[in-house]
Design a protein around this nucleic acid. Sequence first.
DNA 1: ACATAAAGTAAAATATATTTTGCTTTATGT
DNA 2: ACATAAAGCAAAATATATTTTACTTTATGT
Lengths: 64, 64
Amino acid sequence: MKNKKIKMARVELDLSQEQLAEIVGVTRQTIHLIESGKYNPSLKLCVEICRALNKTLDQLFWED
Amino acid sequence: MKNKKIKMARVELDLSQEQLAEIVGVTRQTIHLIESGKYNPSLKLCVEICRALNKTLDQLFWED
DNA sequence: ACATAAAGTAAAATATATTTTGCTTTATGT
DNA sequence: ACATAAAGCAAAATATATTTTACTTTATGT
């Protein structure tokens, strides 16, 4: 299950996966794997992604 | 940095750490470590805790 | 004071997130 | 069509979350 929300928020800020990765302090692959739903990031990383993209956990990571 | 919000939500539902752990499918120690802020759970586990406690990610895991 | 449930603590073992590297594919501009 | 940036993919190595076990401490009821 892909996470389209992150990708959308990222593209909206005109950031590449690599730029987001740098801001957040992880590798590009980590961002890619999260966006493509291949795994299960840590809470800390989720929060850092949220801060980088001006969103909250519920906005990016909550599924109904 | 302790996570008091989880503990409060848990106690409000009259669940012990062990009961919550069982619902969520982890060990009691994992719940304890998360409540006492000793580490950094996975997103999946956070979501499961939220569902067990009828809260959202922002309510339990977001710090301003 | 005693018994018992719940919570705190810790070390070693295991599972899995994350990194590193490198290659391939897709999108975009000229 | 070509060049280049961005994204997808994958295997091996490393870091760290989670389990397991066992013991200690704190809370609560009788």
